[in-house]
Each structure stands twice: as C-alpha cells, then as structure tokens.
Nucleic acid binder design. Structure first.
Lengths: 192, 192
DNA sequence: TCAACTATACCGTCTGGACGGTCCATTCAA
DNA sequence: TTGAATGGACCGTCCAGACGGTATAGTTGA
C-alpha cells in the first residue's frame, strides 16, 4: 500500500485541489482561472469541469478540504497537550508558533492564507466551513479553564500573527516572535 | 469659506475616491469596475480615466489617501495620551477599541478593510503605503518603554481583532471584547 | 476688443482580450 | 457496450483601456 500511496498519482480530484492551492499561492487570487487550474493539474478544462461543475464548486471543494485539515491538526494538537486548564490554549500557541511536534510548516500557513483570500473574494459564504471550525475552537478556548480575557488575548494575538503573515504588513523578526510567545505563555502560567 | 466648504460639491477626484470606497464596501472587491465607479461618482467613464489613467492608478490613489488618514488618526491618538511609557500602546488600544475621544467609527474600519482587500487583490504592492505606516507604528510601539513581548501582544491582538471583523470568522461578543481589553490594559499597568 | 488658439476637464463609444461555462467528440475500463 | 472520465473547440459576457469628440476658460496677438 506504500506503493499505492506513493507511486500512483493522486486521483484527479486531489490533483485539481492541489493545483488550485499552488496556483493561488504563486499567482495570487486573480491568477486562479479554470484554464490555469486545469493546466496546473494536468487535466483539460473539460476534465476539470467534470469534477467541479463550476468555479464556485471548485472553491467549495478546496475550502472543505482545508476545514477538514484544520480540524484534524487542531484535534491532534490538543491531544498532544497534557490535560488540565489551558490545554486548548497551549495547543493553539504550539500551532501558531509552529512547534516541532505539531507544526504545520510554513507553507501550510501560506496555502491557508491564499486559499481563504481566493474563496473570500469569490463569495464570503465560502468561508463558512472554516468559520464553523474557528468558532468551535473559540468556544473550546473559552471553556478551557483560563480567564476570559486571557483566552481572548491568545485567540486574537495568534490571529493577528497570522494576518501579519497574510498581508505582509510588517515582518515580525525572530526576536519579536520569541518575545510574543514568551509573554503569551506566561499569561497561562503565573500562579499569580 | 464655510459655504465654499459645504455647499460646493467636492472636486471630481475626491468624489471618485469616495465612490470607490463605497462601492467596494457595498458590492465587494469584484463589484469594483471602472464603469461602476464612474457611475457611483457621477462621472463618465472617460472622465474617471482622465483623473486616474488606469485601474491601478485608481487603487493607488485610494490607498495613498487611506495611508494618510491612518497616519493622521495615529498621530492624533498618540497626542491624546499622557506622556510616559506605554503611550503608543495606549493609543493603539484606544483606537482598536473605538474609544470615544479618538474612535474612527465602525465604518472607517469597514472601509479600510474593504479597500485593503481590493488593493491586495489587484496587486499586493499597492499595500506598500499602508505597510510603511504600519511598520512605523510597530517601531514606535517597540520603543515605547514597555517590554518587548507585551508590545508584540498588543500589536498582534489588535490586528487579530481587526481580522476577525474583516473576515467575520467569529463574532466576538461585547463581553469578549471587554475582557480582552481589560487584559491588554492590565498588561500595561501592573507595577509588578 | 475680438478672433484665433490652447489647455483643461469631461463625455461616450468601441474593441480586444480574458474568462466562465456549454457542448460534443473521444478514450478506456469493466 | 455502456458509462465514467477526459479532451478541447466554441460562445456569450464582461471589463479595462483606447480613442475621438465636446465644452468652457484662459491666453495671445493684431
């Protein structure tokens, strides 16, 4: 099955979805056209439209897969943390700062960002699957046994870090990130 | 001169820029076409192109004006805060949470978000003027006499709050916002 | 002072190209 | 042989930008 997993090319659906992500990362939102996606996926335009009947269906597919991936990452991340108050918060920090054990790697963040922008541009409703995941994470965080304000700080700070990366508004240095992380972690620890 | 300022309609350039913002807020990024902008500004398409030779020039104009506005708001906000460590941080919090004295009002945030998305979609480079402002603000914040990690927390948390609003990923409740604000403020105050 | 000329501001039509989506022909595996 | 999977030509729409025209104000020169 190793052979099946590595040597056989992924099925067309997957190839197309991958192609869309690659395309959006490289060429930006406006670089995503049906023809370009088909070319990138090594499928004809007709072939692509066989699997995804419209551009919207294509983006829906991408977003759905993304939401599933995020959910899995999130659950795996939480499972890695020891039980007790702040478990969810620690998992989110580990994810946001790309810690070794559950880091998604730089490009996963990048793909997420690009795909979200593309979907949002076409129709904000397409973000709904991801919205659902995010809202669940927020609810978990608020029920995490830590003060409300600290939960919100962790949530918004990690979001902000993501946004900085998304738009490249300012480039946090390594030192910036370490300092931020230390502060956020300390918010979870002090026995006061 | 009061009459001149209020009764005479704003010049065409300003009218066009305003129209673009309104359009993007109402119809989304893809609703911004030259024709639509001209219609909204009550100018012919030719007239619009007289003032802004291309769509890119139009977006550049919008972003430049936005960057100037943000700069002014920022400087005014800092001026309102008493001197001493954390001055810039307090100003940023006041701005982000829309405090009475220097609040930009809900729609200014909305216009900013929409315009940024539109510009980013056309060409990420168009965000450069705003990027410059943001980087200056970050530099000021880091030189604000507060711990590095706390400065970064304030920066990213306010950014994250803005992003939540931008994409509507989760809708922070009034209580969420108050708790967040209290926590961020307390980070600036503790005599340790 | 007035006609000729120029500059500025603006208008509306046209076109070339890109893109989403349809349609039908073709291949191939079961 | 049948239907899933794929190919690719084609069409209608939409939009950015080019272009040529118009009107008004200012300038110049005789």
């Amino acid at each position: 099955m190793d052979a099946a997993a590595t040597t056989t090319p992924p099925d067309a659906r997957t190839r197309i979805l991958d192609a869309v992500e690659r395309l959006v990362v490289q060429k930006g939102v406006s670089g995503l056209t049906l023809e370009a996606a088909a070319r990138e996926a090594k499928v004809s335009k007709g072939g692509l439209l066989y699997h995804f009947g419209s551009k919207e269906a294509l983006l829906t597919g991408v977003m759905q897969r993304l939401a599933e991936m995020v959910t899995q990452d999130y659950e795996a991340g939480v499972a890695l943390q020891p039980d007790g108050p702040g478990r969810v918060a620690r998992a989110m920090l580990a994810w946001a700062f790309g810690e070794a054990d559950c880091s998604p790697g730089e490009d996963k963040h990048e793909r997420m960002a690009a795909v979200c922008l593309a979907a949002f541009h076409h129709d904000p409703v397409l973000l709904d699957p991801l919205r659902a995941v995010t809202e669940r994470m927020k609810a978990d965080l608020l029920a995490d046994g830590i003060p409300h304000g600290i939960a919100m700080t962790i949530q918004t700070a990690t979001d902000g870090l993501f946004m900085a990366h998304l738009f490249g508004m300012y480039r946090p240095t390594e030192a910036d990130i370490l300092a931020l992380r230390a502060t956020l972690v300390s918010l979870l620890e002090p026995p006061s």
